Amino acid sequence: MATNRLVGRLGTYLESRKNITGSVCGLLGLVLTFTGVAGPYWPVVVLGLYGAGALIAPPQRPALPDFPDPSAQLTEIRADFTKLQDYLSDVDLPPATATRLRTLTDLLDALLDPGWVAEILAGDPEGVHTVSRAVRQDIPEAVDTFVRTRWWHRMTPGQDPPEHHLERQLTVLNEEAQRLATALRETEARRQESHTRYLEDRSQ
């Protein structure tokens, strides 16, 4: 096992920039030797030039992890949003709560709809994270907790109705989604203003 690791490291070094640069400098040392410049100290010259080349070579940079781009992330989130909608269609909610939830899901659906809006969203990593968290965590957890708590409320009435907490949670999520939509709209507004200034400056 240790031998395999050693062989692997040796192979990596042989292909590295340091070895290639050092080898090129070492060849220069051999050229100096053949031309008689290095004299009897040619081994020292060759080794010295190789070492100098290896030292000045830029370090080997490991490849960056191959993470999915934001557009690919949105495709995955859309698939999960479809699953979420199927789940929500089977949940019995009070009318007012259902309306509030529908407002939220309609906004998320508009943000995720393939097209120019989704392209703007893909350029905002924090926005993608906000939508992903709402779809994959916040909404399903809020609704599932409501369903389970409602059963206990029926067994032990007199407590704060669970739909009140769900409505408060949905209100917070709606506000968060609205802030995101506003931020994306402002991004486009700034883009439009920048283009206007560019055209005006160009015409002067």
Score class of each variant (00 low, 15 high):
residue 90 D to A: 15
residue 5 R to T: 06
residue 132 S to R: 14
residue 159 Q to R: 13
residue 88 L to K: 09
residue 88 L to G: 03
residue 154 R to E: 15
residue 37 V to Q: 06
residue 176 E to F: 05
residue 194 S to I: 09
residue 203 S to E: 14
residue 66 D to N: 11
residue 109 D to C: 03
residue 8 G to D: 05
residue 43 P to C: 08
residue 112 L to P: 06
residue 196 T to R: 15
residue 44 V to Q: 04
residue 36 G to R: 05
residue 78 R to S: 00
residue 196 T to F: 14
residue 181 A to I: 03
residue 183 A to W: 08
residue 110 A to I: 06
residue 82 T to N: 01
residue 62 P to A: 05
residue 43 P to R: 11
residue 13 Y to S: 02
residue 91 V to K: 15
residue 113 D to K: 12
residue 161 P to Q: 04
residue 197 R to D: 10
residue 124 D to L: 06
residue 12 T to C: 03
residue 134 A to P: 07
residue 7 V to R: 11
residue 191 R to W: 08
residue 150 R to Q: 11
residue 62 P to I: 07
residue 148 R to A: 01
residue 171 T to M: 05
residue 185 R to V: 08
residue 33 T to I: 03
residue 76 E to S: 04
residue 174 N to A: 04
residue 67 F to R: 13
residue 172 V to C: 07
residue 70 P to T: 11
residue 165 H to A: 12
residue 163 E to F: 02
residue 1 M to K: 08
residue 157 P to R: 04
residue 59 P to V: 03
residue 86 D to R: 14
residue 136 R to G: 12
residue 105 T to P: 07
residue 126 E to Y: 15
residue 135 V to F: 07
residue 32 L to I: 00
residue 11 G to S: 10
residue 174 N to L: 09
residue 139 I to S: 02
residue 98 A to R: 15
residue 179 R to L: 00
residue 178 Q to H: 03
residue 166 L to E: 03
residue 20 I to Q: 07
residue 26 G to K: 08
residue 30 L to K: 06
residue 26 G to I: 02
residue 153 H to Q: 10
residue 114 P to W: 03
residue 94 P to I: 02
residue 151 W to D: 05
residue 32 L to K: 05
residue 198 Y to W: 11
residue 90 D to F: 13
residue 88 L to R: 10
residue 173 L to A: 00
residue 87 Y to P: 07
residue 199 L to F: 00
residue 25 C to G: 03
residue 114 P to A: 00
residue 53 G to I: 00
residue 20 I to F: 09
residue 199 L to N: 12
residue 201 D to E: 15
residue 48 G to N: 06
